[in-house]
Design a protein around this nucleic acid. Structure first.
Lengths: 350, 350
DNA sequence: GCTTGTCTCTAAACCGGTTTAGACCGTCCG
DNA sequence: CGGACGGTCTAAACCGGTTTAGAGACAAGC
């Protein structure tokens, strides 16, 4: 028969105390006698009362929500299995703590700043998780300006102490990948990289180049892409067209690697006999394609979990330092094999 | 020097009017003289004021946010390109209207009800978009009980008038797919379906069976899966193992179809020579694998756009009826070809 | 016995908007 | 000329919580 949900005043009345005391009891603050506390909790329980976030937010200046702004073309997000896994990790810590995730997909970096400003001006969220860090990322100073707390995925290069980072080291796995290829006799190893302005893409590329150098291989072929399957296909075609065709290609994500296998095959090449392919992400599909994709596994879910937990601690007032996750790991499957011999590098049938 | 953001009181003071008039002016309500209006807007502009959603929500009982609860295993979401595209469509209407998207990924249907209840009890959102409708979906009555407005993706089977639906007809495309296969001489066509309790999966299956029947093909093989690439692989292995091996398989999503190609290939079969494969989704990767995937294209982005727009109209108080989108379309590429002849059905090399 | 201190609790202010009741003014109309 | 009316505006109540100032009861300390 009641028209609307119960308010704290209803609970107070039912328990025979004041609103303020109900508030104290429900926030586990001292100054409430054990008897009153149980009486209040019982009344709240019976009325099915849960505090309105709106009212709570207004008076306590806390949103009980965190933000995630993804500035990528939707198609590229769809190709990439990182975000779904990452978000599910984030949710695993948010949900039990009564926090919400406010997601923005902006598709265009020019709308990004406006989105962060809106989130802050409207006080929608208490903090944000920064992904896809860029070189000299303008978001670092923007966030300081608008007063939004943040955790970043990977360390920023502009002011590393400004925003606590949750980092995951790709380098060992990429070195392992190159070593793996070298041990299979490959000497012409190419890299299909992500956008150079993305720090993680640049870092993977740098690791790749370093790994090549430490194996005394030179003149590496690197092609930059936007991370989309389409661009991965284009890059592969370009590499396979070169006079000195690479015999192995290391990709910056699985979607491009899978597209790359398709392109190679269409060019009449067999994978892995003629070209070895290494992906990055360890997406589910990579396990089931033929040949199964050799790739680098990163724990996207764990990354989300850890970042969200750190962010909640940060907005809760704790000191939060950088956190280093377990490094990525190479997963060897069937898309990498012995390098073709010199006379063998041209088109051959299975 | 000001510590915190300006409030409506600051704007009122600057414009020399009362708080109430500022509120009227900013919500385009009558009873404000043109001069006052411009003076108020100028003051707001100069102070850089934007209303706090928190305060607005509390007094006007509107959240300015909509919810999306996804109850799927994170791995399955990652395999599927539907949600990222869908969400980007949703954002395209939300962002310009100052609305936010509250996303919940629950991974387990048992947590789903609690999530909706929380969203409603805390009044986090004004409405939700219902995806992955199930047979006799308990969410329909749940939403009525907790008083949350909703738009559903596809029509519910429990009380079709309760929740406006945005529908997209798969049937013609699936009929086209079967006709396409039949015209290529296939007679043993199997289907790798999604979970039967999901209405859209069941509907696709029903369309498939109907299409077979109208082509006078019988004893169809249908295997149910959970939509994951892993389960698609298992289903494919099972189908290819049967005495009467199908010569064509229609999948309920691209991820499974791509996994299926891998399984077939591993079994020594060539696609499309020995088995034809049809996917569903038209994901980007499908275009670049070899053979390029014949699939069914649905406009996930447009679906998100339309659903979000309808939901905002609904929470805004408009009457909203069901909306029918353009039907899905078959995209023929290279994973379908002439059926193998009888003597041809066993393993052969390329 | 009186002060001091500690616990428990209430009343009221406050967060930043929206909304309602009503004041004030000028105009139109009978 | 007086009353009704429309337009513009203000003051104050309200949304549902949190937080502060302080009241009242009781025990301990001098």
């Amino acid at each position: 028969m009641q028209a609307s949900r119960p308010t704290i005043a209803d609970v107070a009345r039912a328990a025979g105390v004041s609103k303020g005391l109900v508030s104290f009891a429900l926030n586990d603050r001292p100054g409430v006698s054990p008897e009153s506390r149980t009486r209040i909790l019982a009344a709240a329980e019976e009325l099915g009362w849960s505090p309105s976030v709106r009212a709570r937010s207004l008076s306590s200046d806390v949103s009980f929500a965190v933000g995630l702004v993804i500035a990528r073309d939707p198609e590229i997000i769809a190709d990439d299995s990182f975000f779904p896994s990452f978000i599910s990790g984030v949710e695993r810590v948010l949900a039990p703590r009564g926090q919400s995730l406010v997601l923005s997909v902006v598709g265009d970096e020019r709308l990004e700043e406006a989105t962060y400003r809106r989130l802050a001006a409207e006080r929608r969220v208490d903090g944000v998780i920064l992904t896809d860090l860029r070189a000299a990322d303008s978001r670092v100073s923007l966030l300081r300006e608008i007063g939004l707390r943040a955790i970043s995925l990977g360390r920023t290069d502009v002011d590393a102490s400004a925003i606590p980072a949750v980092t995951l080291d790709d380098a060992p796995a990429i070195h392992d990948a190159v070593r793996h290829l070298v041990s299979l006799g490959h000497t012409r190893i190419a890299h299909v990289a992500g956008p150079d302005r993305l720090l993680h893409a640049a870092r993977r590329k740098a690791s790749f180049l370093q790994a090549l150098a430490s194996s005394n291989l030179s003149a590496p072929d690197v092609v930059e892409t936007d991370f989309s399957a389409a661009d991965g296909a284009r890059a592969t075609a370009e590499l396979l067209d070169r006079a000195e065709r690479p015999t192995a290609i290391v990709y910056a994500n699985d979607a491009m690697a899978i597209a790359g296998i398709g392109v190679a095959r269409r060019a009449g090449l067999d994978v892995p006999r003629d070209v070895s392919i290494v992906g990055f992400d360890d997406s589910a599909i990579g396990r089931y394609i033929e040949p199964a994709l050799t790739t680098v596994a990163t724990d996207a879910r764990g990354w989300g979990f850890t970042a969200a937990d750190a962010l909640l601690r940060l907005v809760g007032g704790d000191e939060v330092g950088d956190i280093e996750l377990a490094p990525a790991e190479l997963v060897v499957r069937d898309s990498t094999a012995t390098a073709p011999t010199e006379t063998n590098t041209d088109r051959r049938q299975r």
